[in-house]
Design a binder for these strands. Sequence first.
DNA 1: CCTACCGATCGGTAGG
DNA 2: CCTACCGATCGGTAGG
Lengths: 214, 214
Amino acid sequence: MDEPPKGRRSVRADGARTRAAILHAAARLASVDGLEGLTIGRLAADLTMSKSGLYAHFGSKVELQLATIEEAAGVFAAEVVGPALAAQPGRGQLLALCDAYLDYLRARTFPGGCFFAAAALEMGSRPGPVRDRIAAFQHELMGITSGFVHAAHQHGDLLDDSPVALAFEINGQFLAANAGFNLTDDPGVLDLAAMILHRRLDAPTAGSITGSPT
Amino acid sequence: MDEPPKGRRSVRADGARTRAAILHAAARLASVDGLEGLTIGRLAADLTMSKSGLYAHFGSKVELQLATIEEAAGVFAAEVVGPALAAQPGRGQLLALCDAYLDYLRARTFPGGCFFAAAALEMGSRPGPVRDRIAAFQHELMGITSGFVHAAHQHGDLLDDSPVALAFEINGQFLAANAGFNLTDDPGVLDLAAMILHRRLDAPTAGSITGSPT
DNA sequence: CCTACCGATCGGTAGG
DNA sequence: CCTACCGATCGGTAGG
């Protein structure tokens, strides 16, 4: 009766899978109850495990919150930023970002709506490492968006003043779409936001989108 | 040693003053900690009174939350909607609304930023009477804003498509201004939002603003 | 990953 | 408006 190493999955791999399951549940809970309202007791009950089991993975609530943010950031990168990065630089890339964000809301990727919109509002006036991480994410997203605007300018696709201002404007429509959809449960809100964003990004020099050579 | 009725303020008036003090503190606390994070214990400590003293005014936490929303709605009406209602119908009325909102943020009327932006995000996915009241407020504000847009159309001041769409757009800039200001503490965020809104509302048929007769 | 426990705080009530 | 109290839950620890 030997125990070959492949007979059981390694403890390390089991731990990693448990950790992933915890963070998946934590991100979903936090989108509804907030990062502060996320309690270790409820999370443990949700996973049918003990509270101290959670403390084996995360030494404190703050560490759990920070890990949960990383989990949500991964989802956001995959669902929203990824599709936009895959698009060609230009006006279409900005539209891809907007459509991906609205699809991410429509799909109810997180049951409480956009994880980061909720977190930004909740932590905005609560100093500490959690708020700092959320602020850094928001700053990063604004940087990516204004980078897309800059690229569209280079591409001659879009006439506008400041990339920072347009990124701010787009972010505002994201926030309005998230808040409106959460409060009304009406997908028409997302359609309205899409219409506004598409009209806003209608290039004065439109027509150069389809003509990209090999 | 008689006790003339005017010798002490009426119990009713004292109660009303205490209630007002409670709600003032509650609205400020809730803007930071959320309507759910507002606890009766902390609120009592903040007012140096006992928890049961609070229960004499509000029978339950939900009733306290609802009363706190009414308090905040009164502040919002006085600080934001009031100045806009005082303005002449037209493009200038919409700008007055925007400027009043941004001033209300700049003044840190509530220490945690806009009470209703925070509440809308927090309660969006938490069914119940508190969420319903927040949703009604948001709906009311959108109605007021789109009414201003409609009036500006009548006044020939502003060319635009749907009042609902423009109200949605403006609301999005409010949310972005609130979130950005809360996260960065940088008043430049408010200046950026003001610039965006003023440029957005620049009438294609500008010039008819100053010519209103007696 | 567990049981068993800690002090603190939660919303709420009894009785005055 | 108070003291005194209730059961439940909080974040966290000891020890295994």
